[in-house]
Simulated scan of single mutants.
Amino acid sequence: MIWYTALVLAVAAERLAELAVALRNARWSLARGGTEAGRGHHPVMVALHTALLGGCVAEAWLAERPFAPWSGWSMVAVVAAAQGLRWWCIRTLGRRWNTRVIVVPGLPLVTGGPYRWLRHPNYVAVAAEGAALPLVHGAWVTAVLFTVGNAALMSVRVRCEDGALARLAGADARA
């Protein structure tokens, strides 16, 4: 179980790297007239993702969940694929990627990279990782709770993001 704890800590370190990128990008966007939407749900998102990481380790250790190689290694592959997709999104959006919903007037909608096929590919990565990371070591309760919580959060987040982009497109069309 030590290696699983190390995996979860590696994911936590990756999240901290994301936050550093997001803070830098937020400063860049706001300096260019960007506006933020959905401030109210952002703390909930941070809490949910923090709970995911803590829940993975706590459930695996406290409930003495076993590692089942046939499913565990499959879930490690899903976690790795989710990380790859997430960083592809970050690279594709460049300075516009953020953990917050910040839109900058005058910038066109991104339609390259994974956005060529999916409107919200980063959320696909989040959902896949949120289900797979706990299941690496049998933490199925954490996987279910995160998945339900994330679905509720994404229903708010996607509406917020789509609304912010639509308002920006409307403002750009009037300009």
Rank of each mutant, 00 (worst) to 15 (best):
G170V: 13
R39P: 07
L168N: 03
A143T: 08
N25S: 11
A128T: 04
G112D: 14
C89T: 12
G163E: 09
A12N: 10
A37M: 02
M75Y: 12
R167K: 04
V136T: 05
A173I: 12
L153T: 01
V101G: 01
L7K: 00
T92V: 09
P105D: 01
L23A: 15
A77T: 14
A13T: 11
W28V: 11
L165Q: 01
M45Y: 01
W73E: 06
V141Y: 00
G94R: 01
W73C: 10
A10I: 02
V156N: 00
L85G: 01
G94V: 08
A175I: 04
S74P: 15
A175V: 06
A26I: 02
L109E: 15
L135D: 03
A68G: 03
L153H: 08
R119D: 07
V156S: 00
A169I: 06
W73V: 14
V126F: 12
L153P: 06
M75Q: 14
V136K: 02
A37N: 07
A164E: 04
A68P: 03
R167I: 11
V156P: 01
A164R: 07
I90L: 06
T50I: 04
R15F: 05
W117Y: 15
P114C: 07
A12P: 09
I2T: 15
W28I: 11
G112K: 13
R159F: 01
L107I: 08
G54T: 13
G170E: 15
V46I: 15
A22C: 10
E18N: 10
R65W: 11
G72I: 06
G55T: 00
V103W: 02
H41A: 01
E18K: 00
V78L: 09
W87P: 09
S71Q: 12
M45L: 07
V136M: 01
P108R: 03
L165R: 03
G33K: 10
G94S: 13
H120S: 06
R24A: 08
G54D: 05
A20W: 12
W88I: 00
R95W: 13
R24T: 10
